[in-house]
Computed example of a mutant assay.
Amino acid sequence: MAFKTTRPLRFGDCDPSGIAYFPSYLNILVGVLEDYFGSLGFPWKVLINDRRLGVPTVRLDLTFVKPGLQGDNLEFMLAVRGIGRSSLDLEHQVSANGQVLWSAKHRVVATSIDTHKSIAWPDDIRAALTPHLEMTDAHHPAT
């Protein structure tokens, strides 16, 4: 059950030639991840301020296929591939105009905002993530 959302590729996200500046993709991706957690009922403001839980990226492997162009509507698809004690393995596919622009394998980890150490996913968050878990032949369990 993939999470899907669309984001515009704006002027400020591009280099002078109108091609997406790749660090901008990462900023947009963080917003998509934030929206995903919000869709599960866990807005980051509550996670961070009230529950003192962070979700930092610990691994991100991107593969670029085609350039994104200013004005493109980026179609993000986020799939959960593994849930570990504290980790969450995700796959992203980003398309525009029906063509894949880039994909990513992404690991985030639940951490304490106070100690900056990994913590186990709280039971309610794990319960919300679990129905979204999609297995693939290339699945490698999270740790």
Rank of each mutant, 00 (worst) to 15 (best):
A96Q: 02
V32W: 00
Q70H: 13
H132M: 03
D124P: 08
N27P: 04
V80W: 01
G31Y: 02
L40Q: 08
G54R: 07
L62M: 08
D35R: 08
I119S: 07
V30W: 08
E75Y: 12
I119N: 05
L40Y: 01
L33N: 02
L101K: 06
D89K: 02
L78P: 05
L74A: 15
N73R: 13
L69K: 14
P131N: 11
A104C: 15
L26Y: 14
N49M: 13
P122C: 10
N49R: 15
E75I: 11
K105V: 13
V46S: 12
Y25C: 14
V46K: 13
S86Y: 06
I113S: 01
S24W: 05
V30H: 15
W44Y: 15
T111Q: 08
F37K: 01
R52C: 09
P67W: 07
D89R: 05
V108F: 04
Q70R: 12
L88H: 04
D35I: 05
A128C: 11
G84F: 06
R52F: 08
Y36V: 02
I119G: 05
R52W: 03
A79K: 04
N49K: 14
V94Y: 00
D123Y: 08
S118P: 13
V55A: 13
W44V: 11
R126P: 10
E75C: 14
A120C: 04
Q70L: 11
P122V: 12
D35M: 06
Q93E: 07
A79C: 02
S112Q: 01
A110E: 00
K45M: 08
P67V: 01
I113L: 13
G54D: 10
G84C: 07
K66N: 13
T63Y: 08
I83L: 01
D61T: 12
T130M: 14
S118V: 12
A96I: 00
S118A: 15
T57P: 09
V58C: 13
L26N: 14
E34S: 07
L69E: 13
L74Q: 12
P56M: 10
G82Y: 03
L26D: 09
W102L: 09
N73F: 08
A104D: 10
S95K: 14
L29F: 14
W121K: 07
